[in-house]
Write a protein that binds this DNA or RNA. Structure first.
Lengths: 203, 203
DNA sequence: AAAAAATTCCCCCATCGGGGGGTAGGGGGG
DNA sequence: CCCCCCTACCCCCCGATGGGGGAATTTTTT
């Protein structure tokens, strides 16, 4: 069985290769440290499985996974990532991944993942599956285009008046938006709004 | 030559072990996935070198390195980290580390590091040494203990009055600290102060 | 011990922000 | 076709914030 590996950290690459070497019938025939090389190689030959890091230097694994699955639907993709966010995992699976393994996974998990995927099953590492099972995190309401625009200006230290001038609207409008955001996220003031916006990657 | 490895990601552990296995005379005799186990083992026996991840589940490598070097000065420590920040690298070296390797390092770098350290030299992976050479980034003034304490409360949405009550000081004191911070970082209001504090990891 | 920094407290005063309302046009989706 | 969301605008009020000072006490560093 042929496996390709896409991973930009040599130390991890070595680790995975070493694990495969000890398994009968698992062969990491090629490894790549970026998405471009992988796509070039796939053009010539397709393996059974691709183990793919999500954090690549030249592309993000989410898009890369989609590209690969669009062009070669028969190739299974296992995502490998330090990122333990439900939304990322979900997106990856929507894009056709067959498994998701966190980098803190135990050795056997990567082997189990390959085995599962070869049987057309999906596989999640323990911590990834915990994350998925976790009760839906209070999903924060999304910012509208305008709100985001204004919030960024607020975070840049501009006052309502300055923002209003820049956007050619009335101060009261900006104030409205600000108030809406405070209400939307149930925070008492701008300080906490900014904190929340940054820590939750809203801006 | 004996090497201990402290690293909580099995994939990386495997990678490093595999690299050492291919080198003559380099032997990773023990590996640990936390600091406590390492210290317990060191009590009994000390290796020549410890390769130590900075991001451990039960301790941060910076303190762990200091503890190890204080108790066993003859043991060399090589730091292993994804963290490419000058201040962290410096702090690690001050605490007695003999080398610093980023996790994106090439295979040979970890081997070279061990060799260098055995000759009582220090070693930095390419990217780590680039970071060190980089012209001193505009270093932001540090927050004092009290300032940090107050800034965190501000970011949690508390008003000056509430903070004053919690800390048993006058509102004017809190206001003073707030003003000092605004001046210190040259920002016009709290919103930008919070943004800066979070993006620059001051809190 | 002297110098520097941190922490605490105080004044005044203009502006900004947040709480409470309400109104209304336009666009997209059910 | 109708409703909801987004957008935009308006009012009042007052507490919180930021800008300008100054100053005493403790802690830390040199």
């Amino acid at each position: 069985m042929e496996i390709y590996l896409v991973e930009d950290h040599p130390l991890v690459t070595e680790g995975i290769k070493a694990i495969f070497d000890k398994e009968n019938g698992m062969n990491c025939t090629h490894s790549f440290d970026n998405g471009k090389d992988l796509l070039a190689k796939l053009h010539i030959h397709q393996p059974d499985v691709i183990v793919m890091d999500i954090n690549l230097p030249d592309a993000n694994g989410i898009d890369l996974c989609k590209t690969v699955k669009d062009q070669y639907p028969s190739v299974s993709v296992i995502a490998l990532s330090i990122n333990n966010e439900k939304s990322i995992i979900k997106k990856m699976m929507e894009n056709g991944a067959s498994g998701y393994i966190l980098k803190d996974a135990a050795k056997y998990e990567i082997v189990d993942a390959i085995k599962a995927v070869m049987q057309r099953k999906t596989y999640f590492s323990i911590s990834a599956s915990n994350t998925l099972k976790k009760p839906d995190e209070r999903k924060l309401p999304a910012l509208t285009r305008r709100e985001k625009e204004i919030l960024i200006k607020i975070s840049d230290g501009l006052t309502n008046q300055q923002i209003a001038d820049q956007l050619f609207v009335d101060v009261s409008t900006v104030s409205s938006h600000r108030k809406n955001m405070l209400a939307k996220y149930d925070v008492p003031n701008t300080a906490q709004l900014i904190k929340l916006a940054i820590t939750e990657r809203l801006i």
